[in-house]
């Protein structure tokens, strides 16, 4: 014992050598691993709520009606042969494009008006104009249905005051299409307004002052300063709204239920009719997925444009 202790005292001091880290330890220390673990919950949510349903819908759309056999793209081919579906494509495009254009124009006009009134009054107006957007659309559409309804239509009553004959808002093809668009615009324009208002507020006043001194008129200020400075917000808002409007379901479902004679159906309401009410889930899935490739391509180009502009001008 004693000699052991002596040897230990006299031995040169050697720091204990740490064991080399295992592969698992190395991985755990990597920043990328930590980042991956931290984003895992989000990836889980996206996977469960977006990727999986989308993949499953694509899979469903390739099955036969009984969902017992793989039939490839036959559901899509049948749909393209179907007159009603071709009309749904046309109506969906007409509805989405017209509604988005109107929402963008009205939203921009409202934002511009709000931007030019004093901050104090602006808050009240902003709140009031946002009301349509915060009411659940199924409820507000019900209200509109009452206003359009032929027997008690308050709009027709108002028109009659000015000796205008009653309009068959929901009973005639074009009036029904217009009614659906009106309600969608009424509901969606405040979203555009609030986005554009934020964008307008972010344009530095000095750019307008510089344009004034450069000789710009009001219209030229709008064309050469406001619109280019808002291009990214306009693009992203239009893209977002286009996707949401193409997928709109509740307004058509509550207001016209696709009628008269299926002439106001859009993809979502028609997919519900085919897939759920008629019990052909694979074809319903094919209807709802029909616009996906086109919208994906549009989204790709719009987002690429936004990225490019952000790099160039930092806006």
């Amino acid at each position: 014992m004693a000699s052991d202790a002596t040897i230990a005292r006299n031995a040169p001091t050697v720091a204990p050598r740490a064991a080399p880290p295992t592969t698992l330890q190395k991985m755990a220390r990597r920043r990328s691993t930590v980042a991956f673990l931290l984003t895992l919950p989000l990836l889980g949510v996206i996977g469960g709520l977006v990727a999986w349903p989308a993949a499953y819908a694509i899979y469903l759309s390739t099955l036969n009606r009984r969902m017992t056999a793989f039939i490839g793209l036959e559901n899509y081919a049948i749909l393209l042969d179907n007159d009603t579906f071709r009309m749904v494509i046309w109506q969906s495009c007409f509805f989405a494009i017209t509604a988005v254009i109107l929402k963008a124009l009205i939203g921009f006009w409202l934002a511009h008006m709000l931007h030019h009134i004093p901050t104090k009054g602006q808050r009240i107006w902003r709140g009031m104009l946002l009301v349509p957007w915060v009411i659940p659309p199924a409820l507000s559409t019900l209200g509109w249905w009452w206003m359009f309804e032929p027997s008690y239509s308050s709009i027709n009553w108002l028109l009659s005051v000015f000796s205008v004959p009653p309009v068959p808002w929901l009973g005639e093809k074009w009036w029904a299409r217009i009614s659906v668009i009106i309600v969608n615009v009424w509901y969606g324009a405040p979203f555009f307004m609030i986005m554009y208002l934020a964008a307008l507020k972010s344009v530095p006043d000095q750019l307008y002052e510089a344009a004034d001194i450069d000789g710009a008129t009001g219209w030229q200020r709008l064309r050469y300063v406001t619109l280019p400075m808002m291009r990214n917000i306009i693009s992203i808002t239009v893209l977002f709204s286009l996707i949401v409007t193409f997928a709109n379901y509740d307004i058509v479902r509550v207001l016209t239920n696709g009628g008269p004679r299926d002439l106001t159906h859009v993809f979502a309401s028609y997919a519900f009719q085919v897939g759920v009410l008629s019990g052909n889930i694979p074809r319903g899935a094919a209807v709802s997925l029909f616009m996906f490739p086109l919208l994906a391509v549009i989204a790709y180009f719009v987002l690429r444009g936004i990225n490019q502009r952000t790099k160039e001008i930092g806006a």
Partner: peptide, 28 residues
């Protein structure tokens, strides 16, 4: 301002970020 025939250089330059240098100078 546009009819006063003046030109102004601002504190933060107020260059139009979406235009090239040439376009900025040529705008007026």
């Amino acid at each position: 301002p546009r009819d006063r025939d003046i030109a102004m250089v601002f504190q933060n330059y107020a260059l139009y970020p979406h235009m090239t240098v040439f376009d900025n100078m040529a705008f007026g």
